[in-house]
Simulated scan of single mutants.
Amino acid sequence: MLKVGLLGAGRIGNVHAKAISAHPGSRLVAVSDVNMEAAKKLAAQYGAEARATDQIIGDALIDAVLIATSTDTHSDLIEAATKAGKAVLCEKPVDLSLERARVCQKAVAASGRRVMIGFNRRFDPNFAALKAAVDRGEIGKAELLSVTSFDPAPPPVSYVRVSGGLFRDMMIHDFDMACWIMGGLPETVTAIGSSIVDPAIGAVGDVDTAVVTLYFADGRIAVIKNSRRAVYGYDQRVELLGSEGLLSAGNVLENTVSKATAAGVVGAKPEFFFLERYMRAYLAEWAAFVDAVNTGSALPVTLDDGVNALAVAEAATRSAKSGETVKVASVL
C-alpha cells in the first residue's frame, strides 16, 4: 500500500485526494495547505491527518507526495521531497521560471529519485487512443497537428496576475500534447496573442486569446489555439493529419442525446470545465504513477517532459512579446 502525503488542499488538491483514495493500492495519510482549515477539511473527508508540509516531507513512513500547491512553490517542494527519498507527482508547470526548473532538474537527477509531472491530458482515454493509433502507424507519418483548447470563461484577474501567463499556465498542456504526439521538441515557435475577452487581463500583462505555430526540424507543423472564453463549454479537440489519413479526437459531451426535427438537429454541449472533462484522466494518471512506483517501471511523464514543455512556453512568451519566431534551443 503506497502511503501518500498531499501538499495543497485547493481545487486541484481535492481532485487528487479523490484519485488517491479511489485507488486500491494507495492511501492518503496526510494533507497540508497554507490554509490549515482547508487542509483539515479535506483530510477529514478521507480519514487522513492535517499536518505541516515539512512534517509530511520528513515522515519516513510516507512513500510519496503529490504536490498541488501554487506554482511558485513547486521546484522547492520537489527538491525537498526527493531529498527526503519520496516519489513525487507534481502538478504542472515545474516552475514559473525555466531557469529555476532546470536547477530543480539537476537536483533531482543528483538525488536519484523520480518525479512525474501532472500532464493529465495524456491519460484522457480519447487522446491516449489517438496517440496509440499514431504509434501504430495507422495514418502514416504525422504531418500537421491542430490542438484546440478553449476555456468556458476567464479566471479571476487575481489568478492571472500570479499564473505566469497563458503560455505557461494554460497552453503548457497543449505544448506537452504536441511534443508527446509528434515525438519530440519543435525547432521553432511563433506566437501571437491578444486580450480581447477581458481587458483587465491585458492590463496585468497577459493575453487571453492566442495562436502558436510549432515548426519541427523535419518540416512537420503543429498549430495550437487557446482562448479563455467559449460560451458553449470546455472545448478540447485534437486533429492530426498524416501521410495516409486523419485522426481526430472530439469533445466529450454532457450527454449523447440529439434531437432532430424540421427545425434542425441539436445536441448537448461539451462538458463544462476540466473537473468534469478530465476526471477519468486524473484517475488514470494516478494509477499509472502508483504502478510505476510499485514496479519500478518507467514513469509515463517525467520531469524532463515538464522542463521541455516549459521551454516551449518560454519561447512562445518571448515570441508573442517580440513578434519574432524563437528557436527553442535559444531558451534551453
Score class of each variant (00 low, 15 high):
Met1Pro: 09
Leu2Gly: 06
Val4Phe: 04
Gly5His: 06
Leu7Arg: 04
Gly13Ser: 10
Asn14Thr: 13
Ile20Glu: 02
Ser26Ala: 15
Lys40Glu: 11
Leu42Ser: 02
Gln45Cys: 06
Tyr46Ala: 05
Asp54Glu: 15
Ile56Lys: 05
Thr71Glu: 03
Gly85Ala: 12
Ala87Thr: 02
Ala87Asn: 08
Val94Leu: 03
Glu99Pro: 02
Cys104Tyr: 00
Val108Arg: 00
Gly112Glu: 04
Arg113Tyr: 02
Asn120His: 15
Arg121Thr: 12
Phe123Gln: 05
Phe123Ile: 05
Asp124Arg: 01
Pro125Gly: 14
Asn126Ile: 11
Phe127Thr: 07
Phe127Met: 10
Ala128Ser: 13
Ala128Gln: 06
Leu130Ala: 12
Ala132Pro: 01
Ala133Glu: 12
Gly140Val: 09
Leu144Pro: 00
Leu144Glu: 15
Leu145Lys: 08
Ser146Gly: 14
Phe150Thr: 08
Ala153Val: 12
Pro155Gly: 04
Pro156Arg: 10
Val157Arg: 07
Ala178Met: 07
Trp180Ala: 01
Leu185Val: 11
Ala200Pro: 11
Ile201Lys: 03
Ala203Leu: 08
Val204Phe: 08
Gly205Trp: 06
Thr209Glu: 11
Val212Phe: 05
Ala217Leu: 09
Ser227Ala: 14
Asp235Met: 12
Asp235Gly: 05
Gln236Ser: 14
Val238Lys: 04
Leu240Val: 06
Gly242Cys: 09
Glu244Phe: 07
Lys259Ile: 15
Lys259Asn: 10
Ala263Val: 08
Gly264Leu: 12
Phe273Met: 06
Phe274Glu: 09
Leu275Thr: 13
Glu276Lys: 11
Phe289Thr: 03
Val293Asp: 01
Ala309Gln: 00
Ala309Cys: 08
Val312Gln: 01
Val312Thr: 02
Ala313Phe: 01
Ala313Ser: 14
Glu314Ala: 14
Glu314Thr: 15
Arg318Tyr: 02
Ala320Phe: 03
Ser330Leu: 13
Leu332Tyr: 04
